[in-house]
Every structure is written in structure tokens, then in C-alpha cells.
Nucleic acid binder design. Structure first.
Length: 639
RNA sequence: GCUGGUAUAGCAUAACAGGAAGUGCACUCGAUUUGUAAUCGAGAGAUUAUCGGUUCGAAUCCGAUUACCAGCUCCA
């Protein structure tokens, strides 16, 4: 008998050789039906694989990421089986599960695959799934494995075998298809009920552009048809919300070929939105003791040689600007921190001055690879809501709390309800990779961990993900469609104070080196706004939206009253527009709805006479007639 | 940056297979003065991304450039 420990700590005894699926059956039939694979002592195994010794076990289903991975990886095998059936002689590279589904890299010889071929492949996959074949695991000797793929003529699998040693090689078979694979797999193909091939593209063998280009087919599968439908609807919705599309439709921003790739141009409405975001953050920062500064867009090359950025990125970024003066070179600033370090250094500091919090909406320029540019989310010129906090090691935790509080406020105010964070710590195995004393690192890491606990922030910890200059914390939010985005960061930096030789005089009358915190709650205005546009589908929170209402007169006769109403609302700091076209009211309503302006104030004869407005809310409809003052009061309750 | 695809008026698109660049929305003008998601009519708007080539003839075929899209690689 062996002891099986469950995730809740319960221990139960089973016969040695029992499989996870057997164990699941002993718990409940329903669970057994849903088990895709199992985590055995931290390793993901086939649910059918015998367990011979005491183990910690968690059963994995569709609700676990690892369960999904198993499902999708098995789906990749099933797709391979279908491809082999339809295109005999296909050679196979690798076929892993990815975030949403799976792909398989294949070599079809001269054949070119297009989306028109998808239907027949999908049909074949479903046909094979319905054969209800088991996925069978076989341990195999290297010699036998090589013999098998030599016979089959698959040089890619042979190359993969090259890197493996005897004893760790396994084959998996379902139906007629055998693949070299570490596993694990789902018990049977019947679980795969719905398949959609998403796209086909090229990918180099082993990601090496000097090697052969293979055909990569992406697909996704589900245990229920309904889930596939829901997924496709989600993609459809995401397409509708694409910030590039909405940004053009709502006239928020544009790009121009003449201005240059990756250089966003903010139009009046987008800029109004941007301004309101910045005003909000400025006010909150002021409350928290930040000092606002402005620094130039360029700086002498020496500045970035000192900061170390030139050495690391100089060659790959915008090249130096030359002046009439021989040898003089300036760089577009890729970061605000060197300028801020100079601000710190311009006068001596006492420990009593610290922490010093220097903030700037600083526009920076980075030469991103052309293929990387994407709407507002990846650009070559962008504005960071940047700040640098210079403090002592003992103040780190307090400052972290201050920043965490601010960032959480920003996220909730923007309507992001699910905020988590990743704490990136040093790799304990490799202490020499990092600058700064061990003692300070420990202090800083402890400060981050404790601070996140105190503000009750859900975190994951990533060892070895810290920058060489300090540990960091990245915020992630989930948007309205359930997609995760990385937003602002907080980074501790021991490097720049060193390079700029920053000092303060301590209580002991000795010079000490301050520590620096970089932080940006939004990250960059551009990227943040791309996420906000998609999160809200262009229906921005009332306090942010560039046009808060539209006054729609029923006929030209009431345009004067419309102006009166507009002025009255302006006094309440509520801003909007008047649609005074000679159009029918239905038309004005339709156009305003499409512009996603939150309130429509419809005025006709009745309203003029009684000095009222008929209020209609975007997406909701008629809200009844009220006085302008009552509307203003109602509006304010919604802010 | 690499691989593949795309580029027609402000936007969305049509033009069989190389043979007169069309439509809808937006815009301008006129009529209409409208009560909760599109009033009617007229007009104007194009060097078919740019440059070069093939051809009697190019939006259409070829090459280069630029931009965009997807994927790969990257991200201080």
C-alpha cells in the first residue's frame, strides 16, 4: 500500500500501481470523467500512469492551467495524426501547447497549406477523436527510437533524439500515430469534442532563421462545443474593441507615414482623455509628496554613457544627433532617470531631505524593431508617468507602501477590478549577477514582500527575474474580457545611484549612497490608454470621457436653449457638445450613440417651455425629463 | 530585424481572366423643422501608397521602396 496526499492535506492509502484516474474514480465518478492529467509530486503525469510510491497528488481538469495544457498538447498529437492521414509523408517538428491552444510545426515538402485546407483537417481531427483511442505511453530505448524515425524518414525527430539520453525517451501512440514525446497526455481522444484551426504561418526549425522554414499550424480545442463557440465570440468581441480600430473611429489618435512609424499623434479627443488621466495622477502624486519636474527630450551622449544605457542600447536605438560643433553628440532620451539623477545631484542632501520623490510625465524615444510596433501598445515615442524616489534603505518599505497604495488607487479608479502583482527576486544560486550588497538586497526584497502583504495585494513570486540592479514588482490587471495585461512597475535600483555617485549626509555626518525606486503606475500613457480603450470598449468612465454629453435639439428652433443648457452645465464643470444639424432626432440619437457619448440631452418645445431636459443614457435609453440642475446633480452622483 | 500577406476618395468597399475607376457612409449645397438608433434630392471628391519596368493598353503582371496586418525574434 502507498500513501497518497491530497491538496487539502488528507492522506489516503491505495494499492501500489494505482493510477490517478483510479483514485479519481474512488472519489467520484464525475471527477474521474473530468480528469485530464495529474500532478504527482509536482510533476504533471498521465492520469493513467501507475503510481508506485507514496506521492502528493492533485488531479487536473479543464479548470487547471496544467490540465488545459495536457488537453491541448494531446490535441496537437491528434492534429498530427490527421495531417499524416491527409498528407502522407509529412514530417513533424514540435507541437506544444500554448497560451490559447497549441501548434504543430510540420514539413510538408513543397506543399503550401492555406486556410482553405482547414475544414478538411478539422473534420479529420473530429473523425479521429470519435474513434476514442487511448493515448498510450511507451518507454523506448534510444536505438529503437532512432530506428523508428529513420524508417519513417523524419529528420526533425531524429535531431530531437540527438539531445536525449537512453532511459528518458518515451513514445506516445494514439490510433495509428506514434510520436516522440515526453508527455503527459489525456487518457483518450474522445475528450476532444471541438476543434478550430486558427491560422497557418511559417516558423523556422528551432527558431533559427538560418534553418529550414516549417509550416506552423495553430489550433485550439475544447471539451465542449459550447466552449469553442464562446471562445470564438470572445475573439470577435476583442476584434471589435481593438484600440486601433476604436482609436480611429472615435478620433482619439492617429499615425502618419510622414511623421514616422510608431509615433502616435494625439487628436483633440484623445488628448483630452490623456490630459484628464495625467491631471488625476498629478493630483494624487501631489498628495503623496511628489515634486513635479520637467526635463529636456535630449541629453548629451555622456549622460547615457554615465548611466550605462548607451553601452547597452546605443547601437540598437535612435542614433546620436550631431550639431555644427565637431564631436558634439546628443541622444533622444530613452529614460528619464539619468536626468532625474542629475536633479538629485545638483545640491547636497541631508538624510532629513529623504525621501525625495521626483515625478515627470517624461516623453522618451526608443527604436523598437519595426515588426514589434503595434498601435499604441508598442511605439517608438511615448510618455511615461515616471517618478524616481531617492531614499535610504530603511525607508524602502514605507515608500513601497506609498507607491502600492497609489497604484492600487489608480487601477480601481480606472475600473480594473482584478489586480495582481509579480515580485521579481534575485536568483539565489547566482548572487554574483547582481550589483549592490547582499544585505541591501535582502532588505529590499523583504520590504517588497512585506509591503505587498500589508496592502493585501495578491502576488506571485518569480525567482531570478529581478534586474541586475534591483528587485522589482510588476502589476497585472485583467480586463473586461478576462485578458491579462502588465501595467505599471516598481523597481529598486542600486546601480544608478552608484554610477552617478549620488550621496546624502547621514545622522552620523558621513556620506551614504541613497537607493532609488523607479515607478510608473500607468507604465506609459500610450500603452495604458490602449488597454483602457479595449477594457471599456470606448465607453470611458464618466470623469474621463472627452465629451460627457451631447445636446440634441429636436429642431433648429431650440438651438438657443441648447446653448443655454450647455453654459449652465459648464458651470458645473460638465463638458459636452451640441448637435445643431437640421436632422431628425432619430438621426441625432443614432450618431451620438455610435460616438459613445454617455448622455444625450434632448430638448424640444416641452423642455424649452418648462426649462427641462429629456435625458437619455448611452446604451440604456430614456431616463426621463428633469431640470438642468437636477441633471447636474444626478451626473455628479455617477462620477 | 526575419517570413508571409495587404495597400483603390476621410472611412468601408467593387471592378470577370490586362481594355472607360464604380457604390455606400462621411463632406458641400438645396429642400425638409423633425420627439428617442439612418428624411429626400443634387454636387464635389481618385496621379488606384511611392518609384521604376513589361505591354498598343496596367488598379490588375514584374522589381524596389514605404506603411499596415499576422507570426517569429526582441523590449532600458
Amino acid at each position: 500500500m502507498i500513501n497518497i496526499t491530497f491538496p487539502d492535506g488528507n492522506v489516503k492509502q491505495y494499492e501500489a500501481g494505482v493510477s490517478s484516474i483510479d483514485i479519481a474514480k474512488s472519489i467520484s465518478h464525475g471527477l474521474a470523467k473530468n480528469v485530464l492529467s495529474a500532478k504527482v509530486n509536482g510533476e504533471v503525469w498521465d492520469a493513467t500512469r501507475p503510481i508506485e510510491e507514496d506521492a502528493a497528488l492533485s488531479l487536473l481538469t479543464w479548470n487547471d492551467d496544467d490540465g488545459k495544457n495536457t488537453f491541448w498538447h494531446s490535441s496537437a498529437h491528434l492534429m498530427a495524426e490527421a495531417l499524416e492521414a491527409i498528407y502522407p509523408g509529412t514530417k513533424f517538428g514540435i507541437g506544444p501547447a500554448i497560451e490559447n491552444g497549441f501548434y504543430y510545426d510540420i514539413d510538408l515538402g513543397d506543399r503550401v497549406l492555406s486556410t482553405e485546407d482547414f475544414k478538411k483537417i478539422e473534420d479529420k481531427i473530429i473523425e479521429l477523436a470519435r474513434q476514442k483511442n487511448d493515448f498510450e505511453r511507451k518507454e523506448i530505448s534510444k536505438a529503437d527510437a532512432i530506428a523508428y524515425f529513420e524508417e519513417k524518414g523524419d529528420e526533425y525527430k531524429l535531431e530531437l533524439l540527438d539531445g536525449l539520453t537512453d532511459g528518458e525517451i518515451t513514445f506516445y501512440q494514439q490510433g495509428n500515430f506514434v510520436d516522440l514525446c515526453r508527455g503527459p497526455h489525456i487518457p483518450n481522444t474522445e475528450k476532444i469534442k471541438a476543434i478550430k484551426l486558427m491560422k497557418v504561418g511559417g516558423a523556422y526549425w528551432r527558431g533559427d532563421e538560418k534553418r529550414k522554414q516549417l509550416t506552423r499550424i495553430y489550433g485550439i480545442t475544447f471539451p465542449k462545443q459550447k466552449e469553442l463557440t464562446a471562445y470564438l465570440e470572445l475573439l470577435e468581441e476583442a476584434k471589435k474593441r481593438d484600440h486601433r480600430k476604436l482609436g480611429a473611429e472615435l478620433e482619439l489618435f492617429m499615425f502618419s507615414d510622414r511623421v514616422g512609424q510608431g509615433l502616435p499623434i494625439w487628436l483633440p479627443k484623445g488628448n483630452a482623455l490623456r490630459d484628464r488621466l495625467m491631471a488625476f495622477l498629478k493630483e494624487e502624486q501631489e498628495k503623496r509628496g511628489y515634486k513635479l519636474v520637467t526635463t529636456p527630450h535630449i541629453g548629451k551622449k555622456d549622460l547615457y554613457v554615465t548611466s550605462g544605457h548607451y553601452e547597452k542600447y546605443g547601437e540598437d536605438s535612435f542614433q546620436p544627433i550631431h550639431t555644427p560643433r565637431e564631436g558634439e553628440e546628443f541622444l533622444l532620451k530613452p529614460m528619464n532617470c539619468p536626468h532625474h539623477c542629475e536633479i538629485y545631484a545638483h545640491k547636497p542632501h541631508s538624510y532629513k531631505d529623504l525621501p525625495l520623490r521626483i515625478a515627470e510625465f517624461g516623453t522618451v524615444y526608443r527604436y523598437e524593431q519595426s515588426g514589434e510596433l503595434h498601435g499604441l501598445s508598442r511605439v517608438r515615442g511615448f510618455t511615461q508617468d515616471d517618478a524616481h524616489i531617492f531614499c535610504t534603505n530603511d525607508q524602502l518599505k514605507e515608500e513601497f507602501l506609498n507607491v502600492l497604495d497609489l497604484t492600487k488607487l489608480v487601477m480601481t479608479k480606472m475600473g480594473f477590478e482584478q489586480v495582481t502583482a509579480q515580485i521579481s527576486l534575485r536568483d539565489p544560486e547566482n548572487p554574483s549577477k547582481y550589483i549592490g550588497s547582499l544585505e541591501n538586497w535582502e532588505k529590499a526584497e523583504r520590504a517588497i514582500i512585506e509591503a505587498t502583504k500589508e496592502v493585501d495585494l495578491e502576488t506571485v513570486t518569480a525567482l531570478g527575474e529581478a534586474a541586475f540592479y534591483g528587485p522589482k514588482l510588476d502589476f497585472m490587471v485583467k480586463d473586461a474580457l478576462g485578458r491579462s495585461w502588465q501595467l505599471g512597475t516598481i523597481q529598486v535600483d542600486y546601480n544608478l545611484p552608484e554610477r552617478f555617485e549620488l550621496e546624502y549626509i547621514g545622522a552620523d555626518n558621513q556620506a551614504h549612497r541613497p537607493v532609488m525606486i523607479h515607478r510608473a503606475p500607468f507604465g506609459s500613457m500610450e500603452r495604458f490608454m490602449s488597454i483602457l480603450i479595449e477594457h471599456t470598449a470606448g465607453k470611458f468612465p464618466l470623469w474621463l470621457t472627452p465629451e460627457q454629453f451631447a445636446i440634441l435639439p429636436i429642431s433648429d428652433k431650440f438651438n438657443d436653449y441648447a446653448e443655454e443648457v450647455e453654459k449652465a452645465l459648464a458651470k458645473h464643470d460638465i463638458k459636452g457638445v451640441i448637435d445643431n444639424r437640421s436632422e431628425k432626432i432619430g438621426r441625432k440619437i443614432r450618431d451620438t450613440e455610435l460616438k459613445k457619448i454617455p448622455f444625450m440631452l434632448i430638448i424640444g418645445e416641452k423642455e424649452v417651455e418648462s426649462k427641462m431636459v429629456a435625458v437619455r443614457k448611452q446604451g440604456e435609453g430614456d431616463k426621463g425629463v428633469m431640470s438642468v440642475e437636477d441633471f447636474a446633480a444626478y451626473f455628479k452622483t455617477l462620477l
